[in-house]
């Protein structure tokens, strides 16, 4: 089963070819450039004039063989850093990428720590955190259950 899965996945990935068509590049690029006149939409999403013009411009530039990074730089130079919807990976803005990873690692380690504590408790006391009062509670509930079940059966 694993072999079939890996084979299919590998074939599906490699047969992709890796190179993207110009159309795909345009679609991908336009969704990373913010439409300067809209509220938080990319130029791919908006149909206002400026977004249309930027789309056309990006298509021309992709056709002329400019790289993605070059094209993005053109727009950063013209409109400033906030024109790209992907925040920088460096400096203060880089935090937006790093914080979630740190938070996830923290959450996982907290849960991991809890499990290790539970295991320690379980191995040291046999049954974790049970007192005689708990025992009584369980016994009472059990006998209650038995009587109610037998009452139901006898009805």
């Amino acid at each position: 089963m694993a072999i079939i899965a890996i084979a299919a996945l590998t074939f599906g990935t490699i047969a992709d070819g890796g190179t993207r068509t110009e159309g795909e590049r345009v679609t991908a690029l336009t969704s990373t450039i913010r439409c300067p006149q809209c509220r938080g939409q990319s130029v791919a999403e908006s149909n206002v004039t400026i977004a249309r013009e930027i789309r056309a411009d990006i298509r021309t530039r992709v056709g002329a063989g400019e790289t993605d990074a070059q094209i993005r730089q053109v727009y950063i130079d013209r409109f400033g850093r906030s024109i790209v919807l992907t925040p920088d990976g460096t400096g203060f803005t880089g935090l937006v990428w790093i914080i979630p990873v740190v938070a996830a690692a923290l959450a996982v380690s907290v849960v991991g720590f809890a499990f290790s504590r539970w295991r320690r408790e379980a191995s040291s006391t046999g049954e974790p955190g049970t007192s005689s009062a708990d025992r009584q509670l369980v016994d009472r509930a059990r006998s209650e259950r038995k009587t109610s079940a037998s009452r139901r059966t006898s009805k």
Partner: peptide, 16 residues
């Protein structure tokens, strides 16, 4: 946060 702390405007959008 960035705007209020650094007075700098950035966008976080779909790709992020």
């Amino acid at each position: 946060i960035v705007e209020s702390l650094r007075d700098e405007r950035i966008s976080v959008g779909v790709p992020y």
